[in-house]
Write a protein that binds this DNA or RNA. Structure first.
Lengths: 351, 351
DNA sequence: TTGTAGGCGTTATCAT
DNA sequence: ATGATAACGCCTACAA
């Protein structure tokens, strides 16, 4: 292995000078700089990351606590966080969590010097990991939000805005009975996973403010729940004319199942996805109207916020809500006329 | 920060002895071991990863060259590789690739001591990165395969077997005109991405051996290509009674589009997915019959193979093909009778 | 502008 | 069974 020592020897300078040009730490005369650069190239020198980390007490690595869930968005979080880190000459290490290492091991990444800071995702409203990191004084940033946020760096999807916009759009089209479909995490380690909770809260608030009638359906990730969802919705409230789905597979299941029950999309019922992946919705018939989850933006912003904190010292926290860009499909239309509804009901009564 | 020095002082031993008990390097008397363990706990000592890496010349980190593509499988590769690494007390760092750092930067992860070895995915049939890693003597393992494989550690999906099995199953059901749908990477950096190439090769071979008639459709990731796919297939060969799709979105598009063209699944046409994610297929109507891509197994095996190589020295290479577990849906049935086909043709002729 | 030298916290060799 | 001590390769005051 080629060391700075070797480079220094070949360029007839001290090891310190080599360090200066490698890191740009101090000005070095044009002459010697060139000699050193030349020596570096001839020898194929690369500075040792571990030695550097030890001496500088900075690993230039951030850790991403890796998700339990298998979600479309997760890939883009990770990819964009890694890309953003790389651009700033940081590395991104993945730390998978499981029941065995849930909380205590997270701060240890920083305590062992493996990582300078931690990126947390799948944040719950009350998240003990956050408390732990704070108490351990480990720098961190959230992709997501806890209930209490003072002084915390976070980046999250603006679920509130998306939900509200979706409702308003549907209401403007005459819909008064709207169902919300969210994922059910109640029997998982992510029981308090914040997105569905927040969206449900906003949904209830906005619906009642607007004096609209709405029902919330929690769908677990098992297939049969999704298969029966259409019947559940129509059974619970036959007047439902629009569905907001924060659950891509469920949305797909609905698009497949509703027409089979005589409900044409969007003539009889409208569907809109929020915080969705676009790839699936785009190939449905009709193409799904969605508010896309801005996964890539999130990962990047979070990584940048964390690195800024690591390098910048104690500025004000980054607290960003990223909106979901709308994708116009053809799954949303005006609420069906009363005549159409009655015709349908009659047809259903006398088959 | 608490160092070994501090622990040694408190336990009245030398720093070396502390190291012995922390790493289990050498036997230590019950007594002093306990004193040391106690001191460690009281002080909250954690050994510094960077110092350890420097002194031992091992970072206990492996790098995963992170994919360009957004694929369902990728999440499980990554998650399982990270989990397998963690179990062996390794870390997994992600290294995103892009045109700017395509080849040269990969070996540098090892050369800078950041990682002890590299995990490569999205492998192409001829992959310069592999040559480069070999020449740089950087330990690596592949998730995927190159053409030339002597001495290379790799783990891949057994595409050949899945393809052959799918064809045989369809042939046994009387299908003689089978279409293959694969992803089109020809205009991307992954032009030589090996899975579709291999599958196409096997498809052509097996089909001609069995004297069956087949057409290959390459579908790019843009939506319009998927939307028109059903028409493409029926237009090219109206006799097609079965489709093998190695492309989840395309499969979905087909399941949505074919019935609209009067082709019932599976009465008129069968669809089977290979190397698929199961989540989407399961909620289709009818549920898709698939051979699931064993993503989690792959990531884990590859990480294990690499770590074994790093620690075990020079044993024979790990070379594993993992089969795709079949998932029975309801999208495959017997080839339609001639009578049914003729009835259909007549109906189409005189609308 | 360049050099000297003392860490950084471990590992690992060689004594004892 | 334990201890001393020289690396490991680099950073960074401090000096020159």
């Amino acid at each position: 292995m080629v060391t700075m020592q070797d480079v220094a020897a070949r360029a007839n300078v001290s090891i310190a000078t080599v360090s200066f040009v490698v890191n740009g730490t101090k000005p070095v005369s044009q002459q010697t700089r060139e000699r050193i650069t030349k020596a570096i190239e001839e020898l194929g020198y690369r500075r040792n990351a571990m030695a550097r980390a030890l001496a500088s007490r900075k690993s230039r690595t951030i850790a991403l606590i890796y998700p339990l869930l298998e979600h479309h968005n997760h890939h883009s979080f990770v990819a964009s966080a890694a890309a953003a880190a790389e651009e700033r000459e940081y590395h991104l290490v993945l730390w998978p969590i499981h029941s065995g290492n849930a909380t205590a091991e997270i701060a240890s990444l920083v305590q062992t010097g493996m990582a300078d800071g931690v990126l947390l995702m799948e944040v719950q409203l009350e998240d003990e990991r956050v408390n732990y990191l704070q108490q351990a004084k480990a720098p961190f940033a959230l992709i997501g939000r806890t209930r209490e946020l003072t002084g915390i760096d976070y980046v999250d999807i603006d679920f509130e805005h998306s939900t509200e916009t979706a409702i308003e759009r549907l209401a403007a089209l005459g819909h008064t009975n709207i169902a919300l479909v969210i994922e059910d995490f109640s029997r998982t380690p992510l029981a308090q996973y914040s997105p569905p909770v927040r969206v449900e809260e906003v949904f209830r608030t906005v619906m009642s403010t607007k004096r609209l009638s709405g029902t919330v359906f929690r769908v677990s990730h098992d297939t049969s729940a999704m298969m029966s969802l259409a019947d559940d919705i129509l059974g619970t409230d036959p007047e439902t004319t629009a569905i907001i789905a924060m659950h891509d597979e469920a949305a797909l299941a609905l698009v497949m199942a509703l027409p089979e029950r005589g409900m044409q999309i969007p003539q009889d019922i409208s569907i809109v996805g929020i915080a969705s992946a676009t790839t699936i919705g785009a190939v449905m018939h009709p193409p799904l109207t969605t508010y896309e989850a801005p996964g890539a933006a999130l990962g990047r912003l979070a990584a940048e916020a964390l690195i800024a904190r690591l390098e910048g010292g104690g500025g004000p926290p980054t607290q960003v809500l990223v909106p979901c860009p709308p994708h116009l499909g053809a799954s949303v239309g005006p609420a069906p006329s009363q005549a159409r509804i009655e015709a349908k009901a009659e047809a259903a009564d006398s088959p």
